[in-house]
Nucleic acid binder design. Sequence first.
DNA 1: GCATGCTATGAATTCTATTCACGATTCGGA
DNA 2: TCCGAATCGTGAATAGAATTCATAGCATGC
Lengths: 306, 306
Amino acid sequence: MLELRHLRTLIALRDTGSLVEAAERVHLTQSALSHQIKDLESRLGMPLFTRKTRPVAFTHAGERLLTLAEQVLPQLRVAERDLARLAGNEHGRLHMAIECHSCFQWLMPTVDHFRNHWPEVEVDIPSGQNFDLLPGLTREALDLVITDNPQPLPGVHYAPLFRYEGLLAVSKQHALAGRTWVEPDDLAAETLIVYPVDHSRLDVFTQFLDPAKVQPREVRSAELTVMMMQLVASGRGVCALPNWALTEYLERDYVKALPLGRDGVWSTLYAAIREESRELPWMEDFIRTARDTSFAVLNGIKPAGD
Amino acid sequence: MLELRHLRTLIALRDTGSLVEAAERVHLTQSALSHQIKDLESRLGMPLFTRKTRPVAFTHAGERLLTLAEQVLPQLRVAERDLARLAGNEHGRLHMAIECHSCFQWLMPTVDHFRNHWPEVEVDIPSGQNFDLLPGLTREALDLVITDNPQPLPGVHYAPLFRYEGLLAVSKQHALAGRTWVEPDDLAAETLIVYPVDHSRLDVFTQFLDPAKVQPREVRSAELTVMMMQLVASGRGVCALPNWALTEYLERDYVKALPLGRDGVWSTLYAAIREESRELPWMEDFIRTARDTSFAVLNGIKPAGD
DNA sequence: GCATGCTATGAATTCTATTCACGATTCGGA
DNA sequence: TCCGAATCGTGAATAGAATTCATAGCATGC
């Protein structure tokens, strides 16, 4: 009668605050969740939460089930890991690299969490050479590459982690600061600050400016997000960054962020791995853990399909 | 992927030792369980137990899942009880009586267990008057009666608890002791010892001797099971009792027990309650608890349909 | 060697969860 | 106050799963 699926739904609901988003999180439609919960509530003979408020407010019954979920679901995860371990294949190597700047924010918690559960897997993030990383994957120099730029390569599988929105950060005094969103033309007179990587790897260009055939007045680069923020805050330019990289500056009311175009520019972050390693239990677990921690740590991101 | 149903199945499997019986326990067919488990095993990529042995032997993976089940299922029960409590209706009265002798063996653990979880329900087993108990139910003098003799009464619902087999206890030296089962005629020359209740409430008569129009040479009664056993062991008669009432004497090798007829005589024990009280959360819980503890405490009983 | 009891299996079926396509409701802004 | 955007609810249709049915295969004990 009560099933694990219900518990997962409730957790997603609490984390997101709305049926629509919770549905996305568990890869179902909003309608499915509405039915699912309605029917659970009717069997229990009482409501689990109020929908009239944002985020939804849980009743005592709802809270109780959440508690149950928090108890049970982790135990399940542990058991699944133990089973994977019993299946053998618990040894392995996970050398990974990140193609995208400033991913450490969520990668570190993921790696920590993972290390605890798979002591037999040798985890390493060799830093240094910033060459093209994907070939390193086929060469077996690397086992996993975090990238937002999947290119069809034989023997490489891209596991989607999550979707995020590229936002334009501008100073609070900036002329654009009052707008609801910006159009490509708005950037023609601006100084655009970017990471020092190839043009083709910057979504602002590939997905926003290039299609509209617009070029910013000036382009300059900076290594670190903090530096960019300083430049932006002092009005010396604007920059486009993933929404989650901006949250801490937005919270401190340091800069203002605007969607790129009416519908925004969304990209997906992938974990690139070798096809053969795809079914390894600890690899599957790493991907799951990465997704889970991302949602726990980052704001404003959305699930990506499989 | 892994669902609660699987955990319940595994528990049933461990408790019973075979797919056939486990299937009965969870109210499914043997085929369903075979499919269910096969499919779980294939998804996990390893077997959970060996079927070639009786009882089945769990693999490490199977053991791990059993551990999970033991962790999770009780938590679920507690949560369900808490929800029922939140639904209100946690107050109530449960005055019960037993029509069948020697039910205390499993009733006591049930009652204890129940008292802990429903402190607000006043539990009582008024002993004494051995009148017809069912009317007391409609009169609201009683709230629950344990009986093996359900009679259609308006407003009374019979919740089946379990099925048990009536066995004939004979002394180890008895002429019948070597037989695989007994026929009605075999009792024509015997002294039959019974509880001092009405003929119509004794299954040996109603289901075994009467249909075959056989009468025992002599019928005498005894109040307590121990007394009966003493008489039987010393060869002064034979007696028919539920299999579970006999197990302790069989284990001590005190007497011998035989099925009544080739297929045995099976009866069902019911909890008779008022229709209105059927949906009360604590009443539902009591029935469930009674079933569960019966299976845990008693040997050789089988589930009864709903 | 045959009966008995258990498990496996493929196809058919039944049932339940999910989607689809709406309609209803709320909220904030012109 | 009247949109428009977003969210949630609902009934009917659908897809997908779990379950049953009807067997076959395999041991084990007599």
